[in-house]
Design a protein around this nucleic acid. Structure first.
Lengths: 123, 123
DNA sequence: ATAAGTAGGTACTTTTCTGTTCCTTACTTA
DNA sequence: TAAGTAAGGAACAGAAAAGTACCTACTTAT
């Protein structure tokens, strides 16, 4: 309520991408082509549940990072895509990703970067 | 355990700075001069408790973002400073901060950026 | 003798975040 | 007639993060 960090742009940026599935979602959308709900749900090998996908999408939408487009069809069709803010945010993933690669090299904990496919299309 | 995101450099980077007081700590240390425990504890207007400061410092240290230097004196003196990885990570705060400023302007929710003092010294 | 400063630790509770399971609507196809 | 599909919603359970309150050791100052 009286937390000044709510007014901090840096905190805002970090909070916008903090959420277990947000980086996954953003990496999926970062190639520019809109994605459907079911598409996002199925294209991960992990157990992303419907509830979690929905809640993460809602938060990203509320924060103005992604946009939701509903086609008045049956069966329903909904597409998600990055907003202008979202695109700008994804740009910063590149240096963060590079930091992570460097970090993993120097701390050599394990290999095999993931999310690489989506992220590579940022450059 | 079998979560591939543990191998994702981007996820690693975001997790490293996710923690309620980590950005505050890093912003304090980002000017390059080591800071003492009590100094970190007292220089925020908010209620950062001893327990939280300790746990956040421990995590940052475990992750190799900050280093801890104990002086064998009485009364005890402990200094915290950024590691090489930490300094590199803090560089990326600049574009993130800029994104936040831009975001706040376009979404005009409120003003008054915070943490500005520490962050400005990054550039 | 007592209190204060320094850098914490421990136990417990509360809050927030994630995950599980089942339900809905409206149309289409077998 | 029944099942399938797309995109969810709601209720509840469990895990993780954060907060509260109190405790430690050591030494110097009062």
């Amino acid at each position: 309520m009286r937390d000044p960090r709510l007014h901090c742009p840096l905190t805002l940026a970090v909070k916008a991408i903090s959420g277990k599935w947000k980086l996954y979602i953003l990496s999926m959308l970062s190639d520019g082509t809109p994605k459907r709900y079911g598409e996002l749900l199925k294209s991960t090998c992990e157990n992303l549940t419907e509830k979690m996908l929905t809640s993460q999408l809602r938060e990203l939408e509320k924060d103005g990072i992604i946009a939701r487009k509903v086609y008045p069809e049956v069966p329903p069709r909904v597409e998600y895509m990055l907003t202008e803010s979202g695109r700008k945010l994804c740009m910063i993933f590149e240096p963060l990703y590079e930091w992570g690669v460097d970090y993993m090299k120097t701390h050599r904990r394990d290999q095999l970067p993931w999310l690489e496919m989506g992220m590579k299309q940022l450059s």
